[in-house]
């Protein structure tokens, strides 16, 4: 079974989507370490190291995603998790920025996949399996 780490980053307290993701990924056959809400970058990394996770799934719903998510890839590299898959999703920025721009911004930060608030979890799971198995960065 593959381990993944899940959580809502920063000072964000939105917990409903987090529980849905936990249930869905568990159902899909992953061993989910769910850190819940208000998770710091360091906590994501500690959990990923101890559980030997193949992916970190970051949610952000409150509009501060850009500042909270920046630098996570660099910290992962510093801590020896250079090959880990990073996904991010939610309401990543405030306002009406087109999703393509948001996506580009987060891809540049080192996330492998970026999702908006309305994506198909079935597809996410499929991509996640492929990304983990292909060792894709």
């Amino acid at each position: 079974m593959q381990n993944i780490v899940l959580g809502v980053i920063g000072f964000d307290c939105h917990s409903v989507g987090n529980k849905i993701l936990d249930a869905y990924f568990t159902e899909a056959g992953f061993k989910v370490t769910n850190l819940g809400v208000m998770v710091s970058q360091e906590e994501f990394i500690s959990a990923a190291i101890e559980t030997d996770a193949k992916a970190i799934m970051v949610s952000s719903l409150y509009g501060h995603g850009e500042i909270d998510c920046a630098g996570l890839r660099e910290k992962c590299i510093e801590k020896g998790l250079e090959d880990i898959v990073l996904y991010v999703g939610g309401n990543l920025v405030v306002g009406k920025t087109p999703f393509a721009q948001v996506e580009e911004k987060f891809l540049k930060m080192g996330y492998n996949r970026v999702f908006g608030p309305d994506c198909s979890l079935e597809k996410v799971v499929e991509m996640l399996r492929n990304d983990i198995n292909s060792g894709k960065q």
Binding site: M1, N3, K31, T33, I49, E50, T51, D52, A53
Partner: peptide
Amino acid sequence: CGGTDGGNER
């Protein structure tokens, strides 16, 4: 010690 069960072995 270190690593959860099924977690980090290295």
